[in-house]
């Protein structure tokens, strides 16, 4: 137990950062995206990949991000925690990260679509907005 005092002397070897050669799944995912883009163009079928359902290494994620890059559009949807959405360097391939209020990732997807659904204004909301706006104008008329 005397040794307990030497605890600070125990060497600690931090694990090496994941290397690019440990990105085993990234190439397969790119192949899958290629096929999905084909179906989007030819049959107008959007699709997505649930990244959390795959056993990806950090290196996989990193290399996927690097390979796909970032495109022209990016944005944050704030509802029950933020959701980050950006179009990758390849148009039609979107990266969507859902987080909770504590900013923990609760869902991460690559969506192949013309526009991710979460960015599109829901029809019911638009309808409600028209009503709200109309009510607001009516109110203003009363005010004036």
């Amino acid at each position: 137990m005397a040794k307990l005092n030497d605890i600070a002397a125990i060497p600690i070897h931090p694990m090496a950062l994941p290397k690019a050669e440990h990105a085993y799944q990234a190439p397969a995912i790119l192949q899958q995206l290629l096929a999905m883009l084909g179906r989007l163009i030819e049959h107008d079928e959007p699709d997505s990949i649930d990244l959390r359902a795959l056993p990806l290494t950090e290196a996989d994620m990193q290399s996927l991000r690097e390979l796909l890059g970032e495109g022209e559009v990016s944005g944050v949807v704030t509802t029950y925690g933020p959701s980050q959405v950006f179009e990758t360097g390849y148009s039609g391939v979107w990266w969507v990260t859902h987080m909770n209020d504590d900013e923990e990732v609760i869902g991460e997807f690559i969506e192949v679509t013309y526009c991710p659904e979460i960015l599109v204004s829901p029809q019911d909301d638009v309808r409600e907005a028209r009503e709200a706006l109309r009510a607001r104008l009516l109110q203003n008329q009363l005010d004036y």
Partner: peptide
């Protein structure tokens, strides 16, 4: 106070959690 977008997000993450495909 969950919005329709929030509900969409909820369904997507629930499906993911249940091991269901995104579709």
């Amino acid at each position: 106070g969950v919005s329709r977008r929030g509900f969409l997000k909820f369904c997507a993450t629930t499906a993911s959690m249940l091991g269901l495909p995104p579709s």
